[in-house]
Nucleic acid binder design. Structure first.
Lengths: 298, 298
DNA sequence: TCATAAGATAACCTCCAGTTATGATAAACA
DNA sequence: TGTTTATCATAACTGGAGGTTATCTTATGA
C-alpha cells in the first residue's frame, strides 16, 4: 500500500470533528478538498470509513477501529515533534562529562556555570576517573565528552581538540624559600625531598618523561594521590613539589607557594576536549564545546 | 506546526536504511527528491536530523530520539491499514446476534452456515433471550442484529426489516385425529385441552390478541416454556397445540402432527431483522443481512 | 415553505513534489 | 598516487496531485 500519510492527518481531523466542513476550517483548506481526499482514501483502503449524513459524517465500525490506530500514530508524531523541539532548544536532555577532579575544579566549573545558566533544563553528569577509563567509556557511548590533559596517545576513533596551554613548574613553601631566586638544574632538584603525584596520573607520567630526556630519575619522598595533596604538603614544607602553574595562581599570589626557576625548559602541556568520532555529539554536547572554545575564562 | 505527514514516511525510510540512495530505491522516488525533502523537514523542525557522510547518513542524537517516536507512529499506521483491510475483507471481526432458540434452530441456522462458509474468520456470537431484552441490548450496542417475530411495537431508533411471512396453526397428534377434517371455530377449540407456549412469548401474545378479537379467552391446560415442548406434548396426545406451520413441516409430513382447519383466519406473522439506527451496522452485519435477504432457504 | 447546514460534483488552476543532469568529494582500490 | 566508486547536494525544469471557486442536492427544523 502506498497512501500518502498526509491523508491520515486529514482523516484524523474529520473523524475527530465528525464534520467535513469544520475539519476544513481547522485544517485551513476548503471543504471540497477534504471531501475528495476522504473519497480517495476510502478508495485506496478499499472500504468505507464514514457514513455521510446531513449533520456531518459518522465513522463506520471499521472506521472506528481505524481511527483508534491513527489517533495513536498521530499522538506519537506530535510527541516526536515536541521532543525534538525540546532537544534542539535544549529544554531537555543530559550531558555526561568525564573529567578529573582537578580539571573539574580548576578548569571546567566556570564553563559549566555558563552552560547551566544558559540551558538550565539540561542535566549535567560528571564522572571522575583516570583519562584512560574515561576515554574507554567515551568510546562505548557512556560519556558525551571527556576533558583531559594532553598529550595523550592518539586514538583514531576519538576526536581531540586542544583548548588551552598549561605550564608545569616546581614549587616550594616557606621552608625552602632560599631556593626561590636561584636557577636550579633538574639534577639539583633531584637531591631535595620531593612531593609528587603518584604514578598513573598524566601529570606524573609527563614529569617522568621530561626527566628521562635529561637522564634524570626522580625518587620522590611522597607519592600523593591527587593534585591538592601535593600543593598542601609542599606548602607545609615537605620538600619540592610539582604542579601546574595555572592551577595554583591563588597560592602563588598569596605567597604560600613559590615557583622555582629551572635551567631546563619544561615543555607546555595542553588541556583537551575529546569526543567520539563514531557517536555523533548531541546538540547540547556541541553547545558545551562551543562555550569552552569561545570564552576563555582564566 | 504543519509538516506534511508524507515527509515522516520518507524520514522513516531514510533513517531505517541510513542511506538516501537506498531509501530512494525503496520508496521508488529519485534521490534528489529525498535529499530535498529531508532538508525541508530539517528546516521546518528547526534542527538537524542527519549527519551526512560519504557513506550515507547517520542520525544525530536528536534525530535518534525523533526516530523512536516516528517508528512507533508508522507501526500504528501500518496496523491501522491492515486491521481495516482485515475487517473489510471479513478476515477478522465478530458478529453478535440476538435470537430465540426457536428462531435460531428453525430459521437462522441455514444462513449462518452460508455466512460461516463464506467468512470463516468471523466469530459468531448468539444470545438467546426474549425479544424485549434483545432489543434493549441492541439499543445499548451490545448486539449487532436481532432476529425476532413481528409484529413488535415499533421503536423509532430501531430499523426493522420484514424477512419472511410465517403462519400459525392449531395442531393435534393421533389422539385427536378425528378433529382433522372438521372446520372448527375458536369457541369449539377452547373447549378442548390446550397446549400453548407460556405468557411472555411473542407467539402466545399474538395468539391471545387474536383470540381476543373474537371474544375468546383461552385457558390452556399446559403453559409450556418453548416451542419444542408444545409440539412434543401435542404429539403424545395432551390436547390441541398451537405452533408455526413453517417450523413443523417435518412433523406434518411424517403424520406425527396434524393441522386443524379453522373458521376464523389466523393472520400471518413475520420474521424480522432488527438493527440499531444509532449504531451503524458493521460491514459483516451488513453481509449477514444481505445473505438472509438474498437467499430464502426454506 | 423557506432557510439552513451539511456533503457531492465539476471545472479549473497552481505550486511543489517529483524529474533529469550534473557537481563535489571522501573512501576504496588498483 | 591516480582512478573508480559511492554518496549526497544543487540547479533548472515539469506535470499532476491537491488545491480553488461555484454550484447542486437534500435532510432538518423554524
Amino acid at each position: 500500500m502506498n497512501i500518502s500519510f498526509e491523508y491520515y492527518r486529514i482523516f484524523y481531523v474529520v473523524a475527530k470533528t465528525g464534520n467535513i466542513t469544520k475539519a476544513a476550517d481547522e485544517l485551513m483548506i476548503s471543504q471540497p478538498a477534504i471531501s475528495k481526499c476522504i473519497k480517495i482514501l476510502e478508495e485506496q483502503l478499499g472500504g468505507q470509513l464514514f457514513i455521510r449524513t446531513k449533520r456531518g459524517v459518522v465513522l463506520t465500525e471499521e472506521g472506528k477501529e481505524f481511527y483508534r490506530y491513527i489517533k495513536q500514530a498521530i499522538e506519537y508524531i506530535n510527541n516526536a515533534e515536541s521532543k525534538f523541539s525540546e532537544m534542539i532548544h535544549l529544554e531537555t536532555g543530559t550531558i555526561r562529562i568525564g573529567s578529573s577532579t582537578t580539571l573539574t575544579k580548576k578548569f571546567l566549573i566556570p564553563y559549566l556555570e555558563i552552560f547551566h545558566k544558559r540551558y538550565p533544563h539540561i542535566k549535567i553528569e560528571i564522572e571522575t576517573h583516570m583519562s584512560g577509563v574515561l576515554l574507554s567509556r567515551l568510546r562505548q557511548g557512556l560519556l558525551d565528552v571527556v576533558i583531559l590533559n594532553l598529550p595523550y596517545h592518539d586514538e583514531n576513533d576519538i576526536e581531540l581538540i586542544k583548548v588551552k596551554d598549561i605550564h608545569d613548574c616546581f614549587i616550594v613553601g616557606d621552608a625552602y624559600k632560599e631556593l626561590v631566586n636561584k636557577k636550579l638544574t633538574l639534577e639539583e632538584i633531584a637531591k631535595y625531598p620531593l612531593v609528587f603525584q603518584a604514578h598513573g596520573s598524566t601529570t606524573r607520567r609527563f614529569l617522568d618523561e621530561f626527566a628521562k630526556t635529561h637522564d634524570i630519575v626522580f625518587k620522590p619522598d611522597l607519592d600523593l594521590a591527587g593534585f591538592t595533596l601535593v600543593t598542601e604538603f609542599t606548602q607545609i614544607g615537605f620538600g619540592i613539589g610539582y604542579a601546574t602553574e595555572e592551577y595554583i595562581q591563588d597560592e602563588l599570589n598569596s605567597k604560600k607557594l613559590y615557583k622555582l626557576d629551572i635551567v631546563e625548559e619544561i615543555p607546555k602541556r595542553e588541556i583537551g576536549i575529546a569526543y567520539s568520532k563514531r557517536n555523533i555529539p548531541s546538540f547540547c554536547t556541541k553547545k558545551l564545546i562551543e562555550i569552552i572554545l569561545n570564552k576563555q575564562v582564566f
